[in-house]
Computed example of a mutant assay.
Amino acid sequence: MIELKDLDTSAPFLAQLQGPDDGQPITLVNVFVAPEGTVEEVIDIWRQDSFIMKAQPGFISAQLYRGIGDSRILTNVAVWENLTSLWNAFSREEFQKTLTLYPDGSIAHPIVVRKVAVPGVCVA
Rank of each mutant, 00 (worst) to 15 (best):
N30E: 05
A78K: 01
Q56W: 00
V118Y: 14
V121C: 15
Q24T: 12
V112F: 04
A78R: 00
D70C: 06
T27N: 07
E93R: 09
L101D: 09
E93F: 08
S71K: 14
F13A: 04
D22W: 11
V33L: 11
V112M: 01
V29T: 10
L86G: 00
E40F: 05
E3N: 06
V123I: 05
I26A: 02
P119R: 12
D44T: 13
D22G: 06
S71R: 13
Q56G: 02
I60E: 04
K5N: 04
G69T: 07
T75D: 04
G19P: 03
S91A: 13
R72L: 09
P35H: 07
A117M: 11
W80E: 03
S71Y: 13
H109Q: 13
S106Y: 03
A15G: 04
D6K: 10
V121F: 15
T100M: 14
E93K: 08
G19C: 08
P12M: 05
D44S: 13
I107D: 01
F95M: 07
D104S: 14
L101V: 10
A62S: 15
I73M: 14
G37L: 09
P103A: 06
S50F: 11
T27I: 12
M1D: 14
P12V: 05
K115M: 13
L83H: 00
V112P: 02
A108Q: 03
R72A: 06
V29A: 05
L64C: 09
D49Q: 15
D44N: 13
S71Q: 13
M1V: 11
T38R: 12
A117I: 10
V123P: 00
S61H: 04
P57Y: 08
V29H: 04
K5M: 08
T38A: 08
E41K: 15
R114W: 04
R66L: 10
R66S: 07
F51T: 14
S91I: 07
Y65V: 14
L99N: 03
I2F: 00
V39A: 05
V121Y: 15
E40Q: 11
P12T: 06
S71V: 14
K115C: 12
